[in-house]
């Protein structure tokens, strides 16, 4: 580093110290005006003050930026969560340049101007870091939400003693199908159910992968000692399955959930008969 740059750097540090109040105030104005979002002015002022202190400290301690990066990562995470855009997040950091420039211009010395170029480069780096942190935080949020969604969409219901069902609704992708199927198999174990009905009445379409997952689930259930029936296959889906050449083999399929229930009741030895006053009487054939 040349002597000139050193002198410039020192001048910037001095300016940052002498005009702290003014620069901070200007920075806050720029940061607030750069966003259309509702911001908590007091909270943002605290955050900027903290960043400012940390930045000055890091200049003092021969350029160790780890504390400052920690603060910036936190700021990016907060902003990503609150729905700010990446630009709105980065402008907060870049705003410091503009805020300081006014002070540098007033000072007018060559040292200050030279130092400002160096300072500008530091801020650019920090700005890029902010954008990167923002992207990482955003990605994390998306993954978390996808997981939550998967958990929401997987009800396994008990139809009868020893019979459970999964009513699938909506578009099935590979990941969701997998989660639902794992949950179904676990329920078979937990409840000791030997029969399961997978109802796809509410599924508009299936692709090869989803059909394969359904198929694998039925085979896996068999390996565990349970039988699955698939019900509610729409004509289009039946068409797709046949066209795709997926072999459903000896898997039992039924038109409606009611047919599937009747089938599994029969298979588990329960007989349903109509009583005299249209009541339904149930008799278990074997223990």
């Amino acid at each position: 580093m040349s002597v000139h740059t050193d002198a410039g750097r020192r001048r910037i540090e001095e300016l940052l110290q002498e005009h702290e109040g003014r620069v901070l105030k200007r920075w806050l104005e720029i940061a607030v005006s750069s966003t259309s979002n509702q911001v908590d002015r007091g909270g943002l002022a605290d955050q900027l003050r903290e960043l400012y202190q940390s930045l000055r400290q890091s200049f003092g301690s021969s350029g160790d930026l780890s504390d400052l990066r920690g603060l910036l990562a936190e700021l990016s995470r907060d902003r990503a969560r609150q729905g700010f855009t990446p630009t709105e997040t980065a402008v907060v950091v870049f705003g410091l340049k503009e805020a300081l420039y006014e002070t540098v211009e007033e000072d007018g010395s060559p040292d200050a101007l030279r130092g400002f170029i160096w300072f500008s480069r530091v801020i650019d780096d920090l700005g890029l870091f902010t954008v990167e942190s923002y992207a990482t935080a955003r990605e994390k949020i998306i993954i978390d939400q996808a997981e939550q969604l998967l958990e929401l969409s997987t009800p396994v219901v008990k139809l009868w003693d020893g019979i459970v069902a999964v009513p699938l609704v909506g578009t099935l992708d590979s990941a969701r199908t997998q989660v639902v199927m794992e949950k179904l198999l676990q329920t078979l174990v937990d409840t000791g159910s030997e029969h399961a009905v997978i109802d796809i009445t509410g599924v508009p379409a299936v692709d090869t992968e989803v059909a394969q997952h359904l198929l694998k689930t039925v085979v896996a259930a068999r390996l565990m000692g349970a039988e699955c029936v698939i019900s509610g296959i729409r004509p289009q889906i039946a068409h797709t399955i046949v066209t795709l050449g997926i072999e459903f083999g000896d898997i039992v399929t039924k038109a409606t959930l009611a047919d599937a229930l009747a089938h599994t009741l029969r298979a588990s030895g329960v007989r349903v008969v109509k009583g005299g006053e249209s009541r339904i009487a149930v008799r278990t054939v074997e223990a």
Partner: peptide, 19 residues
């Protein structure tokens, strides 16, 4: 064979092994 865990059954199917 009794008590096969779901994860084991799914893996066996993926592996291509029928018992």
């Amino acid at each position: 064979v009794v008590g096969m865990r779901p994860a084991v059954a799914i893996t066996l199917v993926e592996l291509g092994l029928s018992l």
